[in-house]
Design a binder for these strands. Sequence first.
DNA 1: CATCATCGTCAACCATGTTGACCATTCTAG
DNA 2: CTAGAATGGTCAACATGGTTGACGATGATG
Lengths: 186, 186
Amino acid sequence: MVNQVSLSGKGVPGGEARAGGGQERRGSGPPRPRAGYELPLLLFAGFRTLIDELHTELARQGHPDVRPAHGFALQAIGPEGSAASDIARRLGISKQAAGKTVDRLVALGYAERAEDPADARRKLVRLTARGFDMLARSAAIFERLRAEWAAELGEERVSAMEDDLGAVVSPGAFRLDAAGWIGGAM
Amino acid sequence: MVNQVSLSGKGVPGGEARAGGGQERRGSGPPRPRAGYELPLLLFAGFRTLIDELHTELARQGHPDVRPAHGFALQAIGPEGSAASDIARRLGISKQAAGKTVDRLVALGYAERAEDPADARRKLVRLTARGFDMLARSAAIFERLRAEWAAELGEERVSAMEDDLGAVVSPGAFRLDAAGWIGGAM
DNA sequence: CATCATCGTCAACCATGTTGACCATTCTAG
DNA sequence: CTAGAATGGTCAACATGGTTGACGATGATG
């Protein structure tokens, strides 16, 4: 009755059949489309694969305490620094939540707060050298991971995936408020 | 220095240029690959787009209180029902957390607990009629969403995306423990 | 100058995870 | 058969990352 996800096995719906190369796919069976529920799972699994590898590698390079949510927040701060309420707007969360996240980043040594001489209400949040280091390493690691996918699938297939996703993704989905989105109060 | 995500705009990296059709992409500029950080963002945005539309539609069809995490949990219970500790293993979370999630699903009317006659320790968690209804509607909605993507991009492009993701995704990433993964204690 | 908007923060709360501890039950070796 | 180990469920305490509501301090504007 219900289109049940193949859990309880490890069950990548079509993934275990071709772990090695990347050439002879599509050509065995009939071209029946996959079940609709597999697409979101595959997208999430792809995202998660990249993020997990990123953080494994970051941990190896001296950033063991960063969580995915922190990376998003660091991106939201930006090289120029931001006020907490700007961060909140960019992440799509309340300014109180942004304040707590900044607290956490400060505690981890990735950001610091400074007074804004132009406006005594604001407190500018800036990346520390460690924050910049983390961001630079992240960019390099993402570059490497994409290159690995391109080596496996072919550059034009990765580009096609990016172009296609860019075409169908709703603009609102391109927000940084990944954390708390899944289970949260939406 | 740092490969900064284009936030603070709305900034789908290459998405706003082609919101309508899906034909004339690839052919304008040089084929320089996108920056590596865009791929995970696009994958997540794709996932999120599908899930957001699913829940918008579910809300319209009489399931306004379901969260993405609940869908995962219902899938983990399965049509046959499961013990809480099985659910925990499938979701990759502690049995205590699974118990709380089940509490929530029971409170929402999607699941119920029953004694297991064969083992007095176990308590079988089963879907209610409402739970089955939600799962069936989810499957139908996912089917429709995939068809929309196929209409926009072409069936072979969607299939290619699925095949390619299936090929590069790490098996461990295909888990149902999406909730809490991003910010959590990993 | 009075009013209103904005910035940051405090407090209380919710949802989801985590460990550790515990009891009841079942399985398994002797 | 029984003693000990595994297993299943739950309670309690805590962390994290959200939420709303309230509020003081500051800045902008009539």
